[in-house]
Amino acid sequence: MYPKYTHHIMEALGNQPPTNFERRERPLDPGPKPPGPKDDDAGPRQPETGSPSRDNLLKRMRKVDPKQAERYRQRTGE
């Protein structure tokens, strides 16, 4: 059983529990490569095109209300 704060979030996650609760050691990503010729299987995943995908991300960006930031107001926090 999942604890009371979390059983509903597990439902949202499709009731797929983590496969392992123990801390796992695994190799860390070696990070970006220095400037130079790129390999296909390593290094940063730079977008393949020079601009965001037209099908998805640009569509998402166009949906943003131009006045969204103008209306956004918060109180000062820490």
Partner: peptide, 22 residues
């Protein structure tokens, strides 16, 4: 959105995030 398109670097796995929630 970028992350969903696979255009961001992932440091941890979804399974690690699920474990961290619990």
């Amino acid at each position: 959105g970028l992350e969903q398109e696979g255009k961001t670097h992932r440091f941890c796995t979804e399974d690690e995030i699920r474990t961290a929630i619990l």
